[in-house]
């Protein structure tokens, strides 16, 4: 390390941070690739099929093959489309999905930027993702894409509010905006985690997360039977693949945030051997995997919501639930039962 530090001199902090960024983004991209594989396999078995099994051992190379196929394809820009914005839209979609990872802690020490207002940063950055959707729909110069983007953007904006309120509950319980401190406030076994005192918010946050990422059963943006493929119907090749990557990166992000804020992050399930012999990072990964499995399970189980039902659920059910629970948390914190919430 000292040798490298001497080699790069003043550029060392930048080089070291860049190395850390690559260390986060590269596994994330591999995770995205194999999440698509896991999705096809899991849903396949749930529907009594086998799923991809041709490329490589048990189809393990399928995501690589898909990636190469998408890279070789031509990117078609529709006539009358706004070229600059058309190309910018996928960039605007994936950039927030990656930038949010800057403040995610993976263990008490492993975090790229230990920001004080980490939770606020996450909220602000993830709220930018909707621009990619809106601009993609508008710049495509196509009615299907435009309608899809309007539906999707309205849905994202609606569910963001419920999501934000759920996070307010978390920060009240943890008394901190720093994600590392939020996990530290949940130290101990599974009954110390925030899913218990904030149970309604946990449920609201997870379902709103599914809606935010436009996943089934909230995937009206992609309602194949109604508007072809929603906002990215005009995209092809790598430009389409970027939207795809962003969607799955966002899924992993939501799963990670759910694990960090409600499922105790790197804390073991029970705080006694043999559970606390397993390293915290493994616990975090297994929690993320569990939440991701829930995403896939939901997709295989539920039919798509009708659009007015989606809006009703977001505005008339989730937002009141979170508001009421905020009051409950605030009131309990003033009594001698505050220890229940921490």
């Amino acid at each position: 390390m000292a040798y490298l530090q001497a080699l790069f001199g003043y550029a060392w902090p930048a080089v070291w941070d860049l190395a850390k960024i690559i260390g986060i983004v590269a596994p994330l991209m591999i995770g995205v690739a194999y999440l698509t594989y896991a999705e096809r396999k899991v849903i396949g078995y749930m529907q009594v099929r086998i799923g991809p099994n041709r490329v490589g051992y048990k189809g393990l190379l399928q995501p690589i093959a898909d990636g190469i196929k998408l890279m070789m394809k031509e990117i078609i820009i529709p006539s009358g489309a706004n070229k600059f914005l058309f190309v910018l839209a996928p960039v605007l979609t994936i950039a927030p999905a990656l930038a949010a990872w800057a403040v995610i802690p993976f263990s008490p020490q492993m975090v790229l930027a230990n920001v004080d207002a980490g939770l606020l940063y996450i909220l602000a950055i993830t709220s930018l993702g909707v621009y990619g959707v809106i601009i993609a729909g508008w710049a495509s110069n196509s009615k299907y894409a435009f309608l899809g983007s309007l539906r999707s953007a309205a849905q994202i904006v609606s569910y963001e509010i419920a999501m934000g309120f759920a996070l307010v509950g978390v920060l009240m319980a943890a008394q901190s905006l720093n994600l590392g401190d939020i996990v530290k406030a949940q130290n101990g076994g599974m009954f110390h985690w925030f899913w218990l005192p904030l149970f309604p918010m946990f449920i609201v946050y997870f379902i709103a997360g599914v809606a935010e990422t436009n996943r089934a059963p909230f995937d009206v943006a992609e309602g194949e039977s109604e508007i072809v493929a929603g906002f990215h119907v005009e995209y092809s090749g790598m430009a389409f693949a970027i939207f795809f990557l962003a969607e799955y990166a966002n899924m992993i992000l939501i799963a990670t945030l759910t694990s960090l804020m409600f499922l105790g992050g790197w804390n073991p399930l029970f705080n006694f051997p043999p559970f606390n012999w397993i390293p915290g990072f493994i616990w975090l990964l297994s929690k993320i995997a569990f939440v991701l499995f829930l995403f896939l399970w939901l997709r295989a189980t539920f039919p798509r919501y009708r659009y007015d039902q989606i809006m009703r659920l977001g505005w008339k059910v989730f937002i009141p639930i979170t508001l009421v629970w905020l009051l409950v948390v605030g009131a309990v914190m003033q009594t001698r039962f505050a220890y229940l919430i921490h």
């Binding site: 606020l120 909220l123 602000a124 950055i125 709220s127 930018l128 909707v130 963001e160």
Partner: peptide, 9 residues
């Protein structure tokens, strides 16, 4: 961050 969250987002 609030400016980004409220005005931009």
């Amino acid at each position: 961050i609030t400016l980004v969250l409220v005005y931009v987002g």
